[in-house]
Simulated assay, not measured.
Amino acid sequence: MNLHQITLHKLSMRLKHPFHTSFGTIQDKEVFLIDVMDMDGRHGFGETVAFSSPWYTEETVETNFHVMRDFLIPLLREHPIAHPDEVAALFSVIRRNSMAKAALETAIWDLYAKQKEQTLTTTIGGTKAQIDVGISIGMQSTSEALIDKIHAALEQGFKRVKLKIKPGHDIELLRQVRQHFPELPLMADANSAYTLRDLATLKQLDEFKLMMIEQPLAHDDIVDHATLQREINTPICLDESICSYDDVRHAITLNSCQVINIKLGRVGGLYEAKRIHDLCAEHGLSVWCGGMLEAGVGRAHNIALSALPHFNLPGDTAGSSHYWEQDIISPKVIVHNGYITVPQTSGIGYEIDWDAVKSYRTAQWTYTI
């Protein structure tokens, strides 16, 4: 692929609105924009999705930088690659650190698609011209504020709504939402806030006819989720505990869930995400693409991934304006009547807004390959 240099742009971006989960509140997002250039001056772009503190996984912005700089970029320098599929095997000598790996791997995929003068969607096997979009709504200060947020989301055409729940902020909340929106495609995300000791509470979820309950139990669990799925009718979706193809294979063997949320950063990139997609299609598990409060480049990669044929549930890829006053891509990602049109220009289909990058950038480093 004739890789020549890699530039890491460190950005600090402020969300339009604080995002509340069972772990805490997020207002500022640090991001590394990855720029991989070949000998002919073509550029491919990726983005880190780790947070500044290790509340979602063990990775952070700083560990991503350390692993990319000191291990992954040297591997690319020492071992020339001919195709992006080779990156996962090359990086496999480094344990975990999937978000650091995905940032570089997705940038290489974008570059490869541009070298082939085709869309990233086509390059990875995507077939859809548009994708369905849902929305994730963080915890609100009052139920009235939450109802207003849901009304606004439905007016914008979103295909489903995901709500964050935690013990003490769950059953009554969902009951109030269901009373206002009896037919709303609704799911709940617990971010690992429950244990099997909460079985009586979790059984009550069946009353609300949810699309799914996402990761109710421990972040690294597959076994207890199998026990829970036998006890409730609500489909379980695994998120944090799915870090690889083998995790999905184990979940299928144990009947731990009915739905898989695929996040590029969490599974290490597009190669592994495609393998998981194919395995889920083979075994009849529903699939959707989760979000990590990405800026535009990460959002563009999610769009390409969601265009694979078995992504059969709306994902979390909301438009740029939902999260940012100014995104780092042009044109911005736009949701129209609950859909995003898959771009038809080469690579990720969006240009980098370098003025925006410069306004957010706090540091940058360039490495020759």
Rank of each mutant, 00 (worst) to 15 (best):
F32G: 03
L33G: 08
L33P: 08
I34F: 01
V36R: 01
V36Q: 02
M37I: 14
M37G: 00
M37C: 14
D40T: 13
D40L: 08
G41F: 07
G41W: 11
R42Y: 04
G46V: 05
G46Q: 07
E47Y: 09
T48K: 05
A50Q: 04
S52F: 04
P54W: 05
P54V: 08
W55R: 07
W55E: 07
T57R: 01
T57S: 15
E59Y: 07
E62I: 14
T63Y: 05
T63F: 09
N64Q: 07
F65C: 06
F65D: 04
H66R: 15
V67I: 13
V67W: 01
V67L: 15
D70P: 08
D70M: 11
I73W: 03
I73H: 04
L75P: 00
L76R: 00
H79P: 00
H79V: 10
P80T: 08
P80S: 14
H83A: 03
P84Q: 10
P84T: 05
D85I: 02
D85R: 11
E86Q: 15
V87I: 14
A88L: 11
A89E: 14
L90H: 10
F91V: 00
S92R: 10
S92W: 04
V93N: 09
V93K: 13
I94M: 10
R96H: 12
N97K: 09
N97D: 11
M99F: 12
A103S: 15
A103E: 06
A107S: 11
I108R: 03
D110C: 00
L111T: 04
L111H: 01
L111V: 05
L111G: 01
Y112L: 01
A113Q: 01
K114Y: 01
K116N: 13
K116G: 03
K116L: 06
E117V: 10
Q118I: 12
T119A: 08
L120R: 03
T121Y: 06
T122S: 15
T123G: 00
I124L: 12
I124A: 08
G126T: 04
K128Q: 14
K128C: 07
I137G: 10
I137N: 09
S141I: 10
S141A: 15
S141W: 09
T142D: 11
S143Y: 13
E144A: 15
A145R: 12
L146W: 06
D148H: 10
D148G: 06
D148I: 14
D148K: 15
K149F: 05
K149W: 06
I150S: 10
I150M: 08
H151T: 13
H151W: 11
A152L: 09
A152W: 04
L154M: 14
L154I: 06
E155A: 13
Q156I: 07
G157Y: 12
F158P: 03
